[in-house]
Amino acid sequence: MNIFRLVGDLSHLLAILLLLWKIWKTRSCAGVSGKSQIMFGLVYITRYLDLFTNFISIYNTTMKAIFIAVAIATIYLIYFKFKATYDSNHDTFRMEFLIVPVGGLAFLVNHDFTALEILWTFSIYLESVAILPQLFMISKTGEAETITSHYLFALGSYRALYIVNWVYRYYFEGFFDLIAIVAGCVQTILYCDFFYLYVTKVMHGKKLSLPA
């Protein structure tokens, strides 16, 4: 565990708690992509199946359990409790366009051809693109609420910090996992455009809106 990894994890935790809190507090999930949240739920569930097979640390187990619980709670709020506020007209990205190719790739490119390993690989690949429905939704409506943009910033920071963590681990521990690194870089690149808008608009007190 290095500092980049720890701050990355905390940023990840902050992001998902922030989104859950916002939906709960405003009693609304307007502007939030339910499809991205379903895919993140799928990411955590398929990745953390090793909760049952492999104990790493209290920290690891606790964080995994929190991620799964928060993801399920968020999906529940969007699709059940506050369904009336869900912007389904703008959440039109087709999940199968991501899940099917990613599933195929996980079968073809993985470390080991076993069920758990393929599901882990699937989850790594899926996480790298799971935010696309949310970004697509923002590009469709042309704007995002400020808390939603803080959520995206925290989530993107987590990915960027993980890259620094991998560089650190490569140099100091000789450890690297190419699948995680490539997928993590793809994922971080997807946030670059958003980071630019966040720094130029939201940090100056403006709402995130796209130029017409």
Binding site: H12, M63, F176, D177
Partner: peptide, 10 residues
């Protein structure tokens, strides 16, 4: 070096 047991990242 790659080992499956090293899946300590979240």
């Amino acid at each position: 070096k790659y080992a499956k047991s090293e899946k300590d990242e979240l």
